[in-house]
Design a protein around this nucleic acid. Structure first.
Lengths: 220, 220
DNA sequence: TCATATTTTTAAGCGCACTTAAATTTATTA
DNA sequence: TAATAAATTTAAGTGCGCTTAAAAATATGA
């Protein structure tokens, strides 16, 4: 059994809902790696407790309460990640799992103290924005996935997706980090993989990886 | 339900066992605030897993594995308390509950990193020793409870017990902290309460409180 | 549009860490 | 030492968050 809490469900809904703010049970089940039946069970409870709008066979959406709750969990998660990386020097690809545990065991007061200690950071080690204590999310830079780029584009890394296990470790091994400059040297048509220049070295990355590294163009 | 983990049982046994290293189920149940029946259940499991020696109706003791496990939990707890107090400025009487939650959600690697960041502290904010990563406990100062002292003794606070809820808050409110000088001004025979001088103020404390503040005598 | 595939819900059940109540063992004390 | 009290174990049961299997609803596509 996995024993996932209400907190994880709300975070997952928040993260994976579509442009209309809706999500299907199936996607929740996949992201939490549990059965669809378990999701149905929990949705009933979350609905009863006023955190989601749930009607059988219909898409699910967060209530205002649910959204606040989820945003607070994301705040906790990202503040822990930032602390672990910046203060304790924990590597990029390890902070996620550690924060995942800590976020459920911290009072709001503790999170606020850490935030203060970090001098109110606006983004986590992967470039994601940290909601403030009122739930306000700092403005995100306009990010493009590397997979959307063209040959000879020169870009700077501003965000890296941390949803896939093991991927972050690989990404950091090939030299990618926030602020790093990358040049697109070639795009291979047959598999969508891309040849990049990072740290003056040529690196080939798959389309999957390319779609999880977000950048902004360097002008000029 | 309280949902107490194996980890809490082992810590409780470690803390409350007698001079022979033994403990009765009853005491475990009281300290964890659960029923005796729940303790019997868990003891069976802990025994099967090799953490305690358990024979029906006999005293319980930790195996070497159980002792190591418990000591590691105490290490986690005290390192978190030290971090919360020293780095984040969390007050004396709040760190216990917060650490209680965090200790179950931290990898050994995280604890080691915090320990390093704190420059390998030897005692927690209440004066209790912190086991090192091999389980070695730093030598404790020889502590006397204030309740054992005589009129006119001059002493320095070196440890404060954090087992009673609310007591630490009170103790800190009357001016007691580690390293603080106290003079015993009087002992009231009829109830064992004591009149102390702290910060040049007279304070009366009950026998219960007096037996939970530990000191060493100031020579001369 | 109708058969088929997919998603979602329902039903039954499991393991865990508890609970209360009753039975049993051990400890106390008169 | 025998009656009584206290501690401990056993038995039965609960709530929670899962599971698998089957049933029902929705979506897809020839």
């Amino acid at each position: 059994m996995k024993n996932i809490s209400k907190e994880d469900y709300l975070s997952a809904i928040y993260k994976f809902r579509d442009e209309n703010g809706e999500i299907k049970p199936n996607l929740i089940a996949e992201s939490l790696e549990i059965s669809n039946a378990a999701v149905t069970d929990m949705l009933r409870k979350l609905s009863k407790d006023g955190f989601v709008i749930y009607k059988k066979y219909k898409g699910i959406r967060l209530t205002a309460d649910g959204e606040n709750y989820a945003k607070n969990m994301i705040r906790r998660h990202r503040i822990w990640e930032t602390f672990l990386h910046q203060v304790l020097g924990m590597p990029w690809d390890k902070v996620h799992d550690e924060a995942e545990k800590l976020e459920h065991s911290s009072s709001d007061e503790l999170i606020n103290r850490i935030e203060e200690y970090l001098d109110y950071p606006e983004s986590d080690p992967h470039g994601y924005p940290i909601p403030d204590r009122k739930g306000k999310m700092p403005k995100h830079k306009n990010a493009i996935a590397i997979s959307e780029l063209y040959k000879n584009d020169r870009v700077e890394v501003i965000r890296v997706n941390d949803t896939h296990k093991g991927m972050l470790g690989y990404i950091s091994k090939i030299g990618v980090e926030l602020g790093k400059e990358i040049v697109i040297k070639d795009i291979l048509k047959f598999d969508g993989s891309m040849l990049l220049k990072i740290n003056n070295k040529d690196v080939n990355i798959s389309k999957t990886i390319a779609s999880n590294i977000f950048v902004e163009k360097i002008e000029g």
